[in-house]
């Protein structure tokens, strides 16, 4: 019958752990379009860094480098513009 006692204690401890929640809960920030865009911006910056590094390493000819850099910079600029627009709030202009 010892096992019954152990089982009862185990159940009580488990119920206490599961249902006794003192204090505030951690909910974390809501995922918004702006936070998503910041992630995209980081990814594009990382792509730019990689491109720059590969160019310096001599893997990419100058013409290719300029073209790809320009394309990535345009992408980053578009993202930054939308982040700026969202941060200013709806309806406002620069």
């Amino acid at each position: 019958m010892t096992w019954l006692l152990v089982a009862a204690l185990l159940t009580a401890a488990t119920l206490f752990y599961v249902f006794y929640i003192p204090g505030q809960l951690f909910l974390g920030p809501e995922k918004t379009r702006a936070s998503y865009l910041r992630e995209r911006k980081d990814a594009v910056y990382e792509n730019l860094r990689d491109l720059n590094f590969e160019y310096q390493a001599g893997k990419i000819p100058d013409a290719d480098y300029q073209q790809m850099k320009s394309s990535l910079q345009d992408e980053a600029a578009t993202i930054l513009a939308e982040i700026a627009r969202l941060e200013r709030g709806p309806g406002k202009t620069a």
């Binding site: 865009l37 578009t78 930054l80 513009a81 700026a84 627009r85």
Partner: peptide, 20 residues
């Protein structure tokens, strides 16, 4: 860290970006 895209920021038009 470098941020080479900032110079183009002012020229860019706000536009929807991908999904989300």
């Amino acid at each position: 860290v470098r941020a080479p895209a900032t110079a183009r920021l002012e020229r860019a038009q706000p536009a929807p970006v991908a999904t989300g």
